[in-house]
Design a protein around this nucleic acid. Structure first.
Lengths: 200, 200
DNA sequence: CCACGCATGTTGACACTGTCAACACATGTT
DNA sequence: AACATGTGTTGACAGTGTCAACATGCGTGG
């Protein structure tokens, strides 16, 4: 039987394949502490080929994080869009979507906030992060407009909301929210508590 | 003039010097992404000498993180000790000490929660982290006992408190709490809000 | 259709890393 | 004094990230 021809010299779509290979490796035990050479091996190209698509390894990691923020943005926006006229429900739905995103994608979520991706160095990443964050401020603004939430600097409310969601997401990822220790519905409880502090 | 003798073959206190050198390097731009060889060079020994005191690089990083948790524990405990009979004041003082620790030691704080130190792999580290966390649960327990805080699973309250403090500490470290955006006293505001949710 | 420019591959090299084994030196103990 | 142990050094290894030079192929214009 005739052996299959090797891949033509020009891959044609190598950037996407490198990204997808890296995303797959992110799910493995080492998370994003893979090597670029191993990504290239799995993508079936030479060790230097990714350098034609990414200036360096940190650029690939930034790309992964950017895609993560974009996905987080879509998931949080998607839930809040369905509840746009009910501030409290909108808020809770968005918050749960946030935590759900983190627990469904623990390595990606951690990468997004890791020291290995520098938002100051990658403009697209910084914008993606800001965009995801803006969903929160949008929900809080609508809550204030509707009278459901206190009139306060919305960035302060957003900071408090993000801080709690982020910390809780990390606890959820680390398996620290055991029902026998924190009660049956820790996420509901914490969101209720947060809303008590934010509500008019 | 007689030249100074080189260091004797036996350093005598190399482990401590390696740790202190690494702590100093933690304050530099690369944070904990230094190399062990560079630590050894600055400590004035060969590249393999640290391997007589640490099984590998991650053990050194775990040691730094452990010392960080111990210091955090002392600082949070110290403030709450001075307010042990006034739950609300005790809580606020401890919370501010927590955030202050993080903003005073940004790289160390980030290392403590980084993927580069694995609490499951280092028992002393895990215990130090648990000890620091236990200060929070102790404060909350005393608050519940005194009637100042709701009777709830204390671990749930601790989870919510830690989540908020951790997230806020990261925002403070990243310079995201600008007064013109979040108001003049964001930390006071967020702690007040948190206490509203926790208080009886 | 051909030539050129560009995109995007490969090869090979470099400096460096983490880590290990074997050895060297010094200390402590019997 | 001899031995065991602790703790240094030297040298090596396998691997990394990244770069330069070259190789291949695609797209475009004449």
């Amino acid at each position: 039987m005739q052996e299959k021809s090797p891949r033509p010299y020009h891959h044609g779509d190598l950037k996407r394949v490198v990204i997808e290979t890296a995303q797959a490796m992110l799910q493995e035990e080492k998370g994003w502490q893979f090597t670029l050479r191993e990504v290239a091996r799995r993508a079936g190209v030479s060790h230097a080929a990714p350098y034609k698509h990414f200036p360096d390894k940190s650029a690939l990691l930034a790309e992964l994080a950017t895609l993560g923020f974009d996905q987080l943005h879509r998931e949080v926006d998607g839930t809040s869009g369905r509840h746009a006229r009910a501030s409290r429900t909108e808020f809770v739905a968005a918050a749960k979507a946030y935590i759900q995103f983190g627990t469904a994608n623990p390595s990606l979520y951690r990468l997004m906030f890791s020291a290995d991706v520098d938002k100051k160095a990658f403009r697209t990443l910084d914008e993606a992060a800001a965009g995801a964050f803006a969903v929160l401020t949008g929900i809080l603004e609508r809550g204030q407009d509707s009278g459901a939430l206190k009139k306060q600097p919305v960035r302060a409310q957003a900071a408090a909301t993000w801080a709690l969601l982020h910390g809780f997401t990390l606890l959820a990822i680390d398996g620290q929210l055991l029902p026998d220790k924190v009660g049956a519905k820790p996420i509901d409880a914490v969101l209720t508590s947060l809303l008590e502090g934010l509500a008019s």
